[in-house]
Design a protein around this nucleic acid. Structure first.
Lengths: 342, 342
DNA sequence: CGATTTTTTGGTATCGTTACCTTTTAGGCG
DNA sequence: CGCCTAAAAGGTAACGATACCAAAAAATCG
């Protein structure tokens, strides 16, 4: 006996309508929850749906209505909880509005980001949330001409594509560096992820350097940690930074532009017998959950990752429902959190 | 002046074809990389695409070809790195095959999981990867009748829906408990996430209890930590477990069915002056990155999360390319990792 | 109770691609 | 050089839903 599933494929809305004794349009209205259908017809349709095991084909619906119900999110990485928090914020908010999330990873590389954007736009998302404000020229133009609301997050910029929900990475780095100076540290060093002018690590580095300059210090030694070493099981990033500190024994305060680097540095330094903050103070940037479990606990800049996701998703949802029409620029700020490492 | 974007909307493949002086079918072939098009035509199409800024509408393509290029993934949570590793494995593998990821969160709730499955299936994914083997009846039937390859991961089962890539949570818990017994511990306690018969926490609990029984011990006291406290910034889960340990001072070995609970327990216990493992040994389950940064480092069961994602994605990709037709059952195993906490 | 308005329902065309089949063109060969 | 086969290009219809408009049914009213 032949396989049923191959012969008669999935039922369509037309099958449901026929089985319910109504027109396809009426069935469609019932399934979309329109309130203009008589109770009897409505029940007949629901019964037919159950009887046939009908599952709407949203691809067809999307094509006709040009609404896909998809929001695309592009983040540098899914590793670690830095952006996971943001994605949770987006996801929690979007669930209320029946949008689905489609996630792309740019791997901290704007060329790759461009490819990801191109791939995602072909799926005609109703909106895009993208981490960062630094993109390739073509990526910008792809986003701009997509004709959908865009929210750039995790940064501020004077030239937004559309809406922005972020904070000033420059100011945050400036402020914590200044605060560390005021606390008495004088010999600074920097550990950062790869710097490209305009990216987050770059902005933070500039803020750090400006704060030192404004207080009469020159930027101390610095080290770049590749992103895939930010925090791996082997603590390779931490080792690299600890080596760097060993080579620069006069440094009394290490600022890390990235929380995962700071965590690695604290843990490895501690294991090598360096006392934090007595021998060297360490400050981070980001305040992820893992920060709370290490000893000493990390002095850092708290970033509102979940909130940025939530608000960006809210902006898109409101734009898409027609509730608002204007782009929004939101600064969620940041907060310096003093703990034990500096 | 009216907004251009509203008047002349996006160019379509027909526009590209006209502009290139070929038929839509030829243009379509070029864009899909079919090798049966003459070089001159191919170049003309590419030129037209660039000229018009054409972006393919994959929704239309999907409808016609009934291939969406989407793989749906359903995980209990995006929080923490437990499933993030798996998602990375999936994402890395899928990128090679031009599939996009669509992620749903079930929040450790099979009723919610059912809703998520229903929502995702309407988008007609080409395959589904789902964490866990315990589903509602309707969820199972939805998955089964979807007519697409399914991979259940993170578990083993005697009644797979289709393919399975996992390990035996029961055996893993049994083995580590037995090993702890052999190390000399005699007074056990359990900290677990919510247990539902058949879920991962339940299987691990059963393995733990069976091992104790087989060695002549009765299961000691136990405590359930709600999943949203697994590891939050406030270490609430850790506090709850530390309180529990304080009330049960005779316990010499705590087994946690969840790595995040174990991390919280180790950190909070340490801060409260309890010596681990001298006063109480603690063992975890999962071996996430955060495990490597706490003191004492955690004795645990290493789970191959990344590998499970990779292999599940590989299975689907091979099924979809027609390379294989049969479901695969893969046991990726596990490994007991002795560190300092037990 | 008939005319008019309002509410429900239905018919038709269409979204933008690609499957499938046919026609045209190029290539191979005695 | 013509015939036959293979390769390339094109025409048409269809995927399954919904937008839009028209028709039918029900409700309202003088």
């Amino acid at each position: 006996m032949a396989d049923r599933r191959d012969l008669n494929s999935r039922p369509t809305l037309v099958d449901v309508a026929r089985s319910a004794g109504v027109s396809p349009m009426t069935a469609s209205r019932v399934l979309r929850g329109e309130q203009t259908v008589q109770a009897t017809a409505r029940e007949a349709v629901h019964a037919a749906v159950a009887r046939l095991g009908y599952i709407p084909n949203q691809i067809a619906g999307s094509l006709r209505s040009s609404r896909s119900g998809i929001i695309s999110v592009i983040v540098p990485t899914l590793t670690g909880s830095v952006f996971a928090e943001t994605i949770r914020g987006i996801s929690d908010t979007l669930n209320e509005f029946d949008y689905q999330l489609m996630i792309g990873e740019s791997s901290y590389d704007i060329e790759r980001e461009e490819k990801v954007i191109a791939a995602l736009i072909q799926r005609r998302p109703d909106g895009i949330i993208i981490a960062g404000v630094k993109h390739t020229v073509r990526a910008r133009s792809l986003l701009q001409s997509a004709g959908i609301p865009i929210a750039e997050i995790w940064d501020q910029t004077t030239h937004p594509i559309d809406s922005v929900v972020g904070f000033s990475n420059y100011s945050a780095a400036y402020d914590i560096t200044k605060a560390l100076f005021e606390k008495g540290y004088r010999s600074f060093a920097l550990a950062t992820g790869p710097v490209v002018p305009g990216n987050r690590a770059g902005e933070r580095t500039k803020g750090y350097e400006a704060a030192l300059r404004d207080h009469g210090l020159s930027p101390g030694p610095s080290i770049v940690v590749p992103y895939y070493h930010f925090l791996d099981r082997s603590l390779e990033g931490g080792n690299v930074v600890a080596d760097f500190l060993a080579q620069n024994p006069s440094v009394d305060c290490l600022f890390c532009t990235n929380e995962l680097i700071a965590i690695g540095a604290v843990v490895v330094s501690g294991r090598r017998g360096k006392r934090v903050p007595q021998d060297v103070a360490i400050a981070g940037f980001g305040d992820v959950e893992a920060t709370s479990i290490i000893t000493p606990a990390l002095t850092t800049v708290r970033i509102r990752g979940y909130e940025m996701g939530q608000r960006a998703a809210g902006i898109l949802a409101r734009r898409l429902s027609g509730e608002t029409a204007e782009p929004e620029i939101i600064d969620v700020g940041y907060e310096i959190v003093w703990r034990d490492s500096a």
